[in-house]
Design a protein around this nucleic acid. Structure first.
Lengths: 140, 140
DNA sequence: GTAACTGCAAAATATTTGCATCCTT
DNA sequence: AAGGATGCAAATATTTTGCAGTTAC
């Protein structure tokens, strides 16, 4: 069965053009996407508001998660299977390329545990590495 | 000599009321601050625009740095000595408490190195741990 | 005195909400 | 048919910019 429809149905979401298009974009993209990327890709076929609402719905359902960055940008990326409603466990490192700006999920790189000061109880951690990605490195 | 004035002078910044007040707030606060916190604390004594510009100036000078978060919030925290103009080396872990919402710089916890896939060249990394902070843990 | 900083106004941008209409199931 | 999703308009919120007046040095 089509992966796209499968994801939507599994989450009890009605299948609409907007959701299909946006989800398709996430499935095709190795890295993370910003709201602006999505608007550009869908080429204004959908209202800006619809994009906001669709992203929010996907986050709520655990289909995508957002990635922390130190600038204002809010990035979203597909979650792996384990994400349940609202609870994300995508404990892999994200890589942001300084050259091409692309954000990549390094699924195979697990976020290491760190020893915290006394009294701190960790529940979830996120890690972003910046530098030059493999694709840009190869071009030089 | 007054630490506050020292920091401003070291960075060749003129000493103004706004900068003193905002820097004072950072010196007093253990955790990180959002733009909104600063506006509230300064109690509209300064123009909103001045706050934006002051924060930007401090970031440029390496006095404060911003902390990545997965929601939209942009948080700022004091840098340690080593930060030079524009280049931040605050390679410590940040902790966000789910209970009180406070963000803390764990200066003594260094971000571990991770082994990246072939071709990726890291330059800088950020790590955020979420959970329950020492203060909230103690209250329970 | 001069360069730097601030406040105000306004522009540009980003996000949210209400409601009527349309589409999925 | 009914509930959910969308588009549009508009309200809010956030951030940036230009410029004139003020302040630090």
């Amino acid at each position: 069965m089509d992966q796209l429809l499968d994801i939507l149905k599994r989450n009890r979401l009605s299948v609409t053009d907007g959701r299909k298009k946006i989800l398709e974009m996430f499935l095709k993209t190795p890295g993370a996407l910003a709201h602006a990327d999505i608007e550009k890709y869908t080429d204004a076929a959908f209202d800006r508001v619809t994009v906001y609402r669709t992203l929010q719905t996907f986050v709520d359902k655990g289909i995508i998660h957002n990635i922390p960055t130190s600038d204002n940008a809010i990035l979203y990326a597909l979650c792996k299977e384990e994400c349940a409603d609202g609870h994300h466990h995508d404990n892999h490192v994200h890589f942001i390329c300084d050259t091409c700006g692309q954000t990549t999920c390094l699924d195979e790189v697990t976020i290491p545990e760190v020893k915290l000061p006394k009294g701190f109880r960790p529940q979830f951690s996120e890690m972003v590495v910046k530098g030059i990605c493999a694709a840009c490195q190869a071009k030089q």
